[in-house]
């Protein structure tokens, strides 16, 4: 998740540097970054939406990456963290 947040941040910084930036695109990445702040967001949203987010972040094989993100270890970890 940390890596995904860094990638989203890089997209934002790159877009903000441009003189004529695509505001819709910038907003999209801000929203994605905000969404990724929730450690368990991938357990709350549908697989199809998750794939799209991963593609927007430039992940080449979103299916494989998604499976890693929602592995049992990861699931239990985020669920436990929520109530700590």
């Amino acid at each position: 998740m940390e890596l995904l947040r860094t990638i989203a941040m890089e997209h934002i910084e790159e877009l903000e540097k441009k003189e004529q930036t695509d505001k819709r695109k910038l907003k999209r990445y801000y929203l994605i970054l905000e969404l990724l702040k929730d450690e368990q967001c991938f357990f709350k949203i549908s697989k199809e939406d998750a794939y799209q987010i991963l593609c927007h972040l430039g992940i080449i094989d979103p299916i494989k990456y998604y499976k890693k993100l929602i592995s049992p270890d990861q699931y239990i970890q985020v669920m436990k963290e929520e109530t700590l």
Partner: peptide
């Protein structure tokens, strides 16, 4: 809980959000 879903709803308003074809 609903915070994540609200952001997702806003993302879906973006017509280019579903632009990738997933195998």
């Amino acid at each position: 809980d609903d915070y994540t879903m609200n952001i997702l709803e806003e993302l879906k308003q973006d017509e280019n959000f579903y632009s990738y074809e997933i195998p």
